[in-house]
Design a protein around this nucleic acid. Structure first.
Ligand SMILES: [Zn+2]
Ligand SMILES: [Zn+2]
Length: 699
DNA sequence: AGCACGCCGACT
DNA sequence: GTCGGCGTGCTC
């Protein structure tokens, strides 16, 4: 026996994750020493796949004779760092997805499949190709001059910076400061400190692509002279695949010092992060709403804890989860109470629409206020959270209402540029020319009900024919660059009245705006979603902030039918603390997050009954099967299945079931067992699709 | 996911 | 007789 051992080749045994919807990982062998995190080419059944080495084994976990050999090691990239592997293992485990699927869904497309390595025009793979065409492409726009950085901090900011700079280990900091309190300056000072005194890297997350240009400029200005221009990188989903791959490559090779990006950047393969910053941490854009439904903010906190580094969560209206974490002492809260520069306090007033009936969405007090600004040559900003002309179109002689044939939703009336009217579904994209007479009774008395941005624009043009009026919504900014050119017009003073959706509320500064009008503030209040008041509050605060840059102090008019509602008491006083206290109390009474943890089992099918059936069966197996393997069912509540808020979208009907746990880790353990049993349920001939969402935004 | 194997109905 | 439908099962 010993002789045989000496003669046999000694193999290295590896655990490899493959891009498959399977919860298992696969063992392979190699005569070469392969690092954890390497990408390898392996045989799998009749196929050849790329895999990622996640573990080195002493001996294989199955009979060694079944273990196949690694065909090739892909070394065009350094191995994924250990901390990256740990982050992805956590992500897969927490969000209940197969590890291989998760890993491959976050790396750039060309790195996922063998097709970019095998074939005539692949030239040694995507990374090699990238290097060869390096001179041809310059993804970075070189700004002509770099301003010297000389922002002066106030005492609060200085104190915040010094607290952050003194941190030597993991700490989640909630940087809580109103709009204009200078949170960005604090992030940048903290980042500068780390970049100057170490070779560590900074990850800077922002909610939306729209915000990158101005933040990129601040970051570059602030870090000029400390970090090379080309070592500051930007990543978001609208980059070309080539640029994305280039950024990824430079991060993984530790060439990048600073990465500024949207939620996907949380998975960037850093080797040496020193600080994570999450700006506007309450923003729902940090939650991916399809596929792998992760929260970049929550993963950010996990990654920081795992790396034992600080993370800054900045917001004027923190999520109640984060606020609660600060209250119970898990996060360190730093207040920025003062406006940093020449910001003035806004005056927020409510306009009762029961008293002042709106016409085309606009009430008399709002119209008067706009008139006043026009006289003073100041700008007005009108927010309305609905694009199109009117959300409903209906017949006044029968009860016909414009509905989408593919969804349980109304179609929205839109005016197109060539003066045509169209009915459009905002859920599936269905579109038709709007009828001239009622399809049901033939009468021509068809009328739009309610107001969208286009109708408000039309009304304002009628009221103020000499004013320059601009509308900014997803329809008017479809072309690339049109948003920034419209915003330039606004800041150059070429615009008197600006009408827009929520897309205007985030981040953009309007120096000449002294009036903000909010038209349909109520829409969210009575919505089922328990987070709706929280989102409404933060939107109203954010929107109000848009008037704050004006020297004389801005005026904010919020039109509402329910001025007596509690939320407005806090809104007019701009009292987030009060609002949070009030809301957390309600959440606590209702046992909602952050006092419980939730997961949602969603099912999609051709018809609702099949989906509901599947959910009922899933609920039943908790008692029938899960109870034998999981001992803490008393701390888990499974509610009854319900049809989703919008049952049918694009001819697919959806239902869901809520599961609630007292503790986070307990819920995750339960889900893992439950999911194994759900996947064994008969799948109704593959006619259904189901998935579990952990920490859903909406239930 | 893919890909094979396998077992039944309807084609040359 | 075999071509092809997709149900089932496996992949280190
Ligand atoms: Zn009719
Ligand atoms: Zn539709």
């Amino acid at each position: 026996m010993p002789i045989q051992n000496k003669l046999s080749i000694s193999y290295n045994w590896l655990c490899v994750a493959l891009n498959l919807p399977l919860f298992s990982i696969f063992d392979y062998k190699s005569i070469n020493i392969i690092n954890v995190g390497s990408r390898v080419v392996v045989p799998f059944g009749k196929r050849t796949l790329i895999g990622i080495v996640i573990k080195i084994l002493e001996k294989p976990s199955i009979d060694a004779s079944y273990v196949k050999e690694v065909l090739e090691i892909l070394d065009d990239l350094p191995p994924f760092p250990q901390d990256w592997l740990k982050l992805l293992e956590f992500t897969a485990d927490y969000y209940q997805r197969p590890l291989g699927n998760v890993m491959f869904s976050v790396i750039p497309l060309p790195l996922r499949s063998l097709s970019s390595y095998r074939g005539k025009r692949t030239l040694g793979g995507p990374i090699v190709k990238l290097g060869k065409s390096d001179d041809k492409m310059s993804p970075l726009i070189i700004l002509p001059s770099i301003k010297k950085y000389d922002a002066i901090l106030n005492d609060e900011q200085k104190k915040a910076v010094s607290i952050i700079n003194s941190l030597k280990e993991f700490k989640a900091i909630l940087l809580y400061g109103i709009t204009g309190s200078g949170k960005t300056e604090v992030y940048l000072r903290a980042a500068r400190n780390i970049l100057q005194n170490s070779n560590k890297q900074i990850l800077f997350l922002i909610p939306e692509i729209n915000l990158t240009p101005q933040l990129e400029k601040s970051v570059r200005d602030s870090l000029a002279g400390i970090v090379n221009y080309e070592d500051i990188l930007v990543m978001h989903s609208k980059l070309t695949m080539k640029s994305k791959l280039d950024v990824w490559y430079r991060v993984q090779c530790s060439k990048a010092r600073v990465l500024l990006g949207t939620r996907m950047s949380i998975f960037a393969p850093f080797n040496n992060i020193g600080l994570i910053v999450i700006d506007e941490e309450h923003d729902t854009s940090y939650k991916q709403q399809n596929g792998l439904r992760y929260s970049a903010r929550d993963l950010g906190v996990w990654r920081a804890r795992h790396l034992n580094i600080p993370i800054i969560l900045g917001s004027a209206t923190p999520s109640l989860e984060t606020w609660n974490n600060a209250i119970i002492g898990h996060y360190l809260r730093i207040y920025l109470k003062k406006k940093a520069r020449d910001f003035s306090q806004n005056d927020i007033k409510l306009v009762n629409t029961k008293k002042f009936r709106p016409n085309n969405g606009l009430t008399a007090p709002l119209i008067e206020a706009i008139k006043d600004r026009l006289k003073k040559k100041e700008q007005s900003l009108i927010f309305i959270n609905r694009r199109g002309y009117s959300p409903v179109f209906c017949c006044f002689s029968c009860d016909w209402i414009s509905k989408c044939p593919r969804c349980t939703a109304f179609t929205v009336l839109h005016n197109t540029s060539n003066n045509e009217s169209r009915l459009q579904c905002h859920h599936c994209g269905y579109c038709m020319i709007s009828p001239l007479s009622c399809p049901e009774c033939g009468d021509q008395d068809l009328r739009p009900i309610g107001s969208g941005t286009q109708r408000v624009e039309e009304a304002l043009i009628g009221l103020f024919p000499n004013a320059n009026i601009v509308r900014i919504d997803a329809d008017s900014t479809k072309c690339k660059g049109s948003l920034s050119s419209l915003l330039n017009d606004v800041n150059n003073g070429n615009v008197d009245i600006l009408i827009g959706t929520q897309m205007l509320a985030k981040g953009h500064d309007f120096l000449r705006v002294s009036l903000v009008g909010v038209i349909n503030s109520d829409a969210m209040i009575f919505c089922q979603n328990f987070r709706a008041p929280e989102h409404l509050f933060s939107q109203l605060m954010q929107v109000s902030g848009r008037a704050g840059r004006h020297l004389n102090g801005g005026e904010v008019l919020i039109q509402t039918s329910f001025p007596e509602h509690m939320i407005y008491k806090f809104v007019i006083n701009q009292d987030y603390d009060g609002f949070a206290k009030y809301s957390l109390n309600l959440r606590s009474i209702a046992n909602l997050p952050p006092y419980s943890y939730q997961a949602l089992l969603s099912v999609e099918s051709k018809n609702l009954r099949i989906a509901m059936d599947f959910l009922h069966k899933s609920k039943n197996i908790i008692k029938e099967k899960v109870s034998f393997e999981f001992n803490y069912l008393s701390d888990i509540t499974c509610y009854d299945p319900i049809p989703s808020r919008i049952v049918r979208i694009a001819d697919i009907e959806r239902a869901q079931m809520l599961v609630e746990g007292k503790h986070r880790s307990l819920l995750i353990t339960f889900l893992k067992v439950w999911l194994r049993h759900i996947s064994r349920l008969p799948n109704n001939k593959n006619k259904i699709k189901w998935y579990i969402e952990v920490d859903p935004l909406e239930i």
